Amino acid sequence: MTATFRISEDDYLAAMKLHARLTPARLALTVGIGLLLVLGAAFGPPLLEAASVGGLVGGGGVLLATRFIVLPLMARRHYRKYKAIHEEFNAELLDHGLRLTVPHSDHTIVWQNVLKWRHDGRFVLLYPMPRLFHVVPKSVAARGFDLKGLLERLNRHVGPPA
C-alpha cells in the first residue's frame, strides 16, 4: 500500500540529530578520551594537569556547541535550501526495496544498495552512502504503510540498525 508524508523543518532537524547520534564505538572512544583527560587532570604533573583540563573544557565545549548550536542551525539552513524535501512523498514497500516518489521523481531503494540504517521513535533513516540518507517518518504507519514489514526487511537484508 502507498502512503504519503511530508518532512517538516522540525522533522528534518530531528532526523539530523538521529543521524549525528554517536555509534557505540564512537561513544566508547569519546568516553575513553574523556576518562584519560580526567585521569591526567587528577593525577598528572602540573603541565599535564593544565593541558588535560584545557582538553576537557575545549573538547566538551566543541561537542556541546556542535550538538546544540551548529547542528540545528545547519540543518534548518539545509532544509530551507533543499526544495525537493518540501514535496509530498509517497512510500511503497516492495519485496526488493522501498519505492519513494515525489511529483518529479520516482526512486526505488533496493535492499542490496542500503549500506546501513538506523531508527528511533520517530524516524527510519536508510543510508545508500555513509552520509546520505532517506528519511521515512514512522508516523506513516498511521496512513497504512507497513512499518513493521520495513523494519523486518531491513533487519533481514541489511542487518541490525547502526
Rank of each mutant, 00 (worst) to 15 (best):
Arg80His: 12
Glu92Gly: 04
Leu27Cys: 03
Gly44Met: 00
Gly54Gln: 00
Lys148Met: 10
Val62Gly: 07
Met1Gly: 14
Pro130Glu: 05
Val158Cys: 07
Leu63Lys: 07
Arg153Ala: 07
Ala91Leu: 02
Asp120Gln: 13
Leu132Glu: 05
Ala91Ile: 09
Arg26Met: 01
Thr66Arg: 14
Leu48Met: 04
Leu151Ile: 13
Leu151Ala: 04
Phe68Met: 01
Arg122Ala: 09
Arg131Tyr: 15
Ala141Lys: 04
Gly32Asp: 03
His96Ser: 08
Leu64Cys: 06
Val135Ser: 06
Thr23Asp: 00
Thr101Ile: 01
Thr66Glu: 15
Pro45Cys: 09
Val136Tyr: 07
Ala20Thr: 06
Lys81Arg: 10
Met16Ser: 06
Ala162Tyr: 07
Arg131Asn: 13
Thr101Ala: 01
Gly55His: 05
Gly40Ser: 00
Pro45Asp: 13
Pro103Cys: 03
Thr23Ser: 02
Met129His: 08
Val158Pro: 03
Ala141Val: 12
His19Trp: 11
Gly97Glu: 11
Leu150Asn: 06
Gly61Val: 13
Pro161Asn: 02
Gly121Gln: 13
Glu88Pro: 07
Arg67Met: 03
Lys83Trp: 14
His78Phe: 14
Val53Thr: 05
Thr101Glu: 14
Asn113Ser: 09
Asp10Ala: 14
Leu22Lys: 12
Pro160Met: 08
Gly34Val: 01
Leu126Cys: 08
Leu98Asp: 03
Ala51Phe: 07
Gly44Arg: 02
Lys138Ile: 12
Leu126Val: 05
Lys138Pro: 01
Thr30Gly: 10
Ala25Pro: 10
Pro130Gln: 04
Gly58Trp: 07
His19Asn: 10
Ser8Pro: 13
Val57Lys: 06
Asp120His: 13
Leu93Gln: 02
Ser139His: 10
Gly54Cys: 00
Lys83His: 12
Val140Gly: 06
Arg21Gly: 07
Asn90Lys: 09
Gly55Pro: 00
